[in-house]
């Protein structure tokens, strides 16, 4: 069975003042209908760029899709006509953003903003669209949706605004829903509610969800499958349980180690030493080499490829050579 959304060898470059940098260096991902794919990694690893490329929202210039393909039900999206992408955006592929506080337009009521999304893709009257918007607000758990639909974004809390964003995103029953760190800006208790809501929405609407996060807790709660990204590449990919229980790549191991666990003896929070290297300074070897305790000469000169050496696919020489 071919995947609902398949990204193959996607390469995205940006012109910056340091010259051309490669933000995505051959990313391949896929997601099937009704499935949730978790994409994890630190800030700057290319998660959001992958999402924006899928939406056709990479600012060009300075960005450029240098190669690869993105197929939705077999239809190629790389190089598709702008009008075709506008027709797909919000209808077949929808996106929820990280910042609910700033992602809604402050001068329009939330009801009008949802209704606009509906009217862009469906032939309904403005009155009907507004009624549909109220029904959607009700569906995402907003109390007295009739009154709230006439509110402006600043009158709602962060959690409520993210619910509005979700209502807007699912208004046209998209096939793929991309959630880019949908709970990062929210309270912990509200986070759990939003995840519950996303799960319910997926059950009702049957959408595939791509959940972008750096929160392994969110992954264990939501994801069926996980792709770990680092410096513009996918470095490990497997079923969520496999990645959580048997991480292969030293970076994935590090991410899992960072999860604070109840009952663990040491109380200090763990971290991965160092930061993601700036993309313009990436050399020929593994991008993680400078932060990795298993680095040898080969890691510094040769980029590891994603392949099944151990338990499941990982891009690491140390795993391949059986050193860890």
């Amino acid at each position: 069975m071919s995947a609902l959304l398949a990204i193959e060898d996607l390469r995205v470059t940006f012109n910056t003042r340091y010259g051309q940098v490669t933000a995505l260096d051959g990313v391949s991902l896929h997601v099937n209908a009704g499935e949730t794919l978790g994409v994890v990694g630190e800030s700057g690893c290319g998660k959001s760029i992958t999402a924006l490329a899928t939406m056709g929202l990479i600012p060009m210039p300075p960005g450029r899709i240098a190669g690869g393909s993105i197929r939705l039900e077999g239809e190629e999206l790389v190089g598709a006509a702008p009008a075709r992408m506008r027709g797909l955006r919000g209808a077949d592929i929808a996106m929820i953003f990280q910042e609910p506080m700033t992602s809604l337009n402050p001068v329009f009521t939330v009801g009008a903003q949802i209704a606009e999304a509906i009217m862009l893709h469906q032939k309904v009257s403005p009155d009907q669209a507004f009624k549909d918007a109220i029904a959607l607000l009700d569906r995402v758990g907003i109390p007295s949706p009739d009154a709230r639909a006439r509110d402006y974004p600043h009158q709602l809390s962060g959690g409520m605004r993210q619910r509005v964003m979700i209502a807007m995103a699912v208004s046209c029953r998209p096939k793929v829903l991309i959630a880019d760190e949908p709970t990062t800006a929210l309270d912990v208790t509200v986070q759990a509610q939003i995840f519950d809501l996303l799960n319910e929405i997926q059950r009702d609407f049957g959408a595939a969800i791509i959940l972008i996060t750096h929160d392994m807790g969110a992954i264990s709660e939501m994801a069926d499958r996980v792709a770990v990204m680092y410096a513009g590449r996918v470095i490990e990919e497997a079923q969520a349980d496999d990645v959580l229980d048997f991480p292969q790549h030293p970076y994935a191991r590090g991410l899992i180690d960072c999860i604070p666990a109840l009952g663990r003896e040491d109380h200090a929070l763990r971290e991965i030493p160092g930061v993601v290297p700036p993309l313009h300074l990436l050399g020929a070897g593994c991008a993680f080499a400078d932060r990795c305790e298993h680095t040898n000469a080969r890691c510094k000169t040769e980029k590891p490829l994603l392949a099944a050496h151990g338990h499941h696919p990982a891009a690491c020489h140390a795993v391949e050579e059986g050193r860890i």
Partner: peptide
Amino acid sequence: GSDYIRTARAKGAS
């Protein structure tokens, strides 16, 4: 450059 403009584009506005 603001987030809500990206949202508007994301819902398919012209």
